[in-house]
Nucleic acid binder design. Structure first.
Lengths: 227, 227
DNA sequence: TGTACATCAGTGAACGCGCGTTCACTGATGTAC
DNA sequence: TGTACATCAGTGAACGCGCGTTCACTGATGTAC
């Protein structure tokens, strides 16, 4: 219908957004230009007015998925608590598009335990399309070329740094392990067909990670650097 | 060349073996019937004399990859130590084909720590094609239909059970967490582009998992059930 | 404010390609005599 | 042991299909007068 410049920006945004969701749900390989364009009510030809190639879109969609999944992990669950914070953070519809990498401290959650519980929830497990892209796409990216691996590496390190900041001892080592364990547990919970066992993985990882956060017994220092 | 019945069995074995490697290296989606057949020096048409469809092969190749990856994790590293045990275990070339699911206890490693160190090694990280299929294909299978997820679930539970047996307290909870963390850490180490950081993830997971195995401080019972 | 026109967002036919699958075939295998 | 023949493992042309990408086009946008 309309062909204004403002609408072009909105179309691009819708394409990228849909792509970010679809790759998390079905993987990088499954994204098809034709089906993607149909899903945002456009025809395939128009795609190349927005992106140079499928592969360029893939890189941008991965970036977007990583930002969005990280943001979703930091804020409360999308159904209820997001409503409450909408007034303060989001001003316009397109505001979220620019400079999402700059924001660091303000949006982080209360503490490590809250973060872990939110990440290893049934809700997160059951909605990969809006969830953490690190978990959803790690195998895909592990097999991909360096450019995509660099994009994910950067976000992974950012995530680890935030986890470390949430820990009492700020240990990078612990944060690195916690991130790996959370990603692994979410993945495993998505594989298991028995719902009880799927829940059990999440519960087990929650328990052990929260126990890990309340410092180790060998170096029994209440608060402060261990070495 | 030859078309004997014995050769047909060997062809089938080569196809399945190659498929098990290729899916671990490049994912389920990337497996192409034509390229697979070319890689074992056959033509695409012959494929349907061995398997009913690509999808049937995929299920069998996943099963094979899971068995093989598990076996590789249990025995020593393929380069040196396998040589030593070759005389005792492998009798003929086709012996490995039959009844690989039956063997349980004899091939398990000395202890939990050895297992962890072997799993979270640079060698395992750098050879996904012959390594653990749980790590290589978890995202792919998480997105797949129930049949494939059931196949992986069964192997995952088998793996968890073996881990639990290797733990002093035999806690399923701990084994479930350890399996998730090992899978996650291996995946993350394969994503990270910085070699030093990739090594750091493996080291961090190794340290924390081995510490986890030497029982927790809150319930300080030396050996026996906690509840 | 109203008309003339360049711009350009989105359309849809067309391209070459690789895919999974089918099938008539070829020629070595292995059996019956 | 030697010949005649049915079997069947593997071949390669052909199929219909969806893919990524190109391009001549249409018609609303938005600017110049």
């Amino acid at each position: 219908m309309g062909h204004s410049q403002a609408e072009k920006a909105r179309s691009r945004e819708r394409i990228l957004q849909q792509a970010a969701e679809q790759i998390r749900e079905h993987g990088l390989k499954s994204l098809s230009v034709g089906k993607l364009m149909r899903s945002v009510d456009l025809t395939h030809g128009g795609f190349y007015g927005h992106f140079a190639s499928r592969s360029e879109l893939l890189a941008q969609a991965l970036e977007r998925a990583l930002c969005e999944g990280g943001a979703a992990a930091r804020t409360a669950d999308p159904t209820s608590a997001t409503r409450a914070t909408t007034g303060t953070t989001a001003t316009t519809g397109t505001a979220a598009t620019t400079g999402s990498t700059a924001t660091t401290a303000p949006a982080s959650p209360a503490d490590f335990a809250t973060w872990v519980r939110r990440y290893l929830s049934r809700q997160h497990r059951d909605s990969p399309g809006t969830g953490c892209a690190l978990a959803a796409l790690s195998s895909d990216v592990a097999r991909a070329e360096e450019p995509l691996r660099k994009v994910m590496s950067a976000h992974l390190e950012q995530y680890v740094a935030r986890l470390a900041a949430a820990l009492d001892d700020h240990e990078d080592d612990k944060a690195l392990f916690a991130a790996s364990a959370m990603i692994g547990a979410l993945l495993v919970s998505r594989v298991l067909t028995d719902p009880a066992r799927s829940d059990a993985v999440l519960a087990a990882a929650r328990t052990h990670l929260i126990a890990l956060a309340s410092s180790d017994p060998s170096a029994s220092v209440p608060a402060g650097e261990s070495l």
